[in-house]
Simulated assay, not measured.
Amino acid sequence: MTAGITWEEPFCGEGNNCFRIGTDAQGNAYIAVAGQEEHHLTDSRDALRTLIRDIKAGKADHLL
């Protein structure tokens, strides 16, 4: 795993799409495909929180 990042348990949607969300002590948030955490995207916790809220609100349904 990537040093300094605390990863949550994988979240798996329908099919085999599993993602992991992580955070670090500096306030950064990370998202990665489960098993490929070394290739993560990084942003602030606020940005990740907004992304999750928007997904839950259906704002990304057109991408599915």
Rank of each mutant, 00 (worst) to 15 (best):
I52S: 11
F11R: 06
L48S: 07
L41Q: 14
R20I: 11
G4N: 11
H39N: 14
E37H: 03
L51R: 02
R20Y: 01
L48M: 13
C18Y: 00
A32G: 05
D46S: 15
L48P: 03
D61A: 12
H62D: 13
A3F: 00
T2G: 01
A34T: 08
R45Q: 14
S44K: 04
T42W: 00
M1F: 00
R53E: 15
K56L: 13
I55F: 06
F19K: 02
G22S: 06
G13F: 01
W7K: 05
I52W: 01
H40P: 00
I52Y: 01
H39I: 14
E8S: 12
G22T: 04
D54Y: 09
A32P: 01
A25I: 11
E38Y: 03
F19T: 09
A3V: 10
I55N: 10
I5K: 06
L63S: 12
A32Q: 03
E14Y: 01
E38A: 14
I55W: 06
S44E: 05
G13T: 10
K56S: 11
N17I: 05
I5Q: 09
W7V: 09
H39P: 10
I31C: 06
H40T: 10
Y30F: 10
L63E: 15
R20L: 04
T50C: 11
L64F: 02
D46Y: 03
V33Y: 00
P10D: 05
G58Y: 08
E37A: 05
G4H: 04
A57K: 07
T6Q: 06
M1N: 10
N28G: 07
H62R: 04
H40S: 13
K59G: 14
A34F: 00
I31E: 02
K56A: 15
I21R: 07
P10Q: 05
G35C: 00
C18F: 00
E37G: 05
E14G: 14
Q26D: 12
D24Q: 04
D24K: 01
E38S: 14
K56Y: 07
Q36R: 03
G4F: 00
C12F: 00
T23I: 15
D43K: 08
A60Y: 02
K56T: 13
L64P: 02
L51D: 02
R20S: 10
C18W: 00
L48G: 07
L64D: 06
E8I: 07
V33A: 05
A57I: 09
N17C: 05
D54R: 14
P10E: 05
G15E: 10
L41P: 15
G4D: 12
A60L: 08
I31F: 02
P10K: 00
F11T: 11
I5C: 07
G35Q: 03
Y30D: 14
G13H: 01
G22F: 01
G58F: 09
Q36V: 03
G13R: 01
